[in-house]
Simulated assay, not measured.
Amino acid sequence: MLDVRFKYGGGYRYYDVPEYIGNAFINASSHGTYFNDFIKDQYDYEKIEG
């Protein structure tokens, strides 16, 4: 599971994200680009508070 908080728009919890994807996201030079390329529309998610 990977929790992502956006500057404007709250947070989301993504399910069944492999550990290597989460680690690469954390270490990416551009979080937005990595998110769009490898996470967005790839995993089930739900909106979470915050």
Rank of each mutant, 00 (worst) to 15 (best):
G9T: 01
G9D: 06
G10L: 13
G10I: 03
G10M: 09
G10K: 08
G11R: 09
G11D: 09
G11H: 04
Y12S: 11
Y12Q: 04
Y12H: 08
R13Y: 11
Y14K: 02
Y14L: 04
Y14H: 05
Y15P: 08
Y15N: 07
Y15A: 12
D16S: 07
V17C: 10
P18K: 04
P18W: 12
P18D: 07
P18F: 08
Y20M: 08
Y20L: 03
Y20Q: 04
Y20D: 07
I21Q: 03
G22M: 09
G22Q: 06
N23T: 09
N23A: 09
N23R: 13
A24H: 10
I26W: 07
I26M: 12
I26P: 05
I26G: 01
I26H: 10
I26S: 08
I26D: 08
N27S: 15
N27H: 13
N27Q: 14
A28F: 03
A28E: 06
S29C: 13
S29T: 13
S30R: 10
H31N: 06
H31E: 01
H31Y: 12
H31K: 15
G32D: 14
G32C: 05
Y34A: 04
Y34P: 14
Y34E: 02
F35L: 03
F35Y: 11
F35D: 02
N36F: 10
N36R: 11
N36I: 09
D37L: 09
D37A: 07
D37R: 07
F38L: 08
F38K: 04
F38T: 03
I39C: 02
I39S: 05
K40L: 08
K40H: 14
D41C: 09
Q42R: 14
Y43E: 00
Y43T: 01
Y43V: 03
Y43W: 02
Y43S: 00
Y43M: 02
Y45C: 13
E46F: 12
E46T: 10
E46L: 11
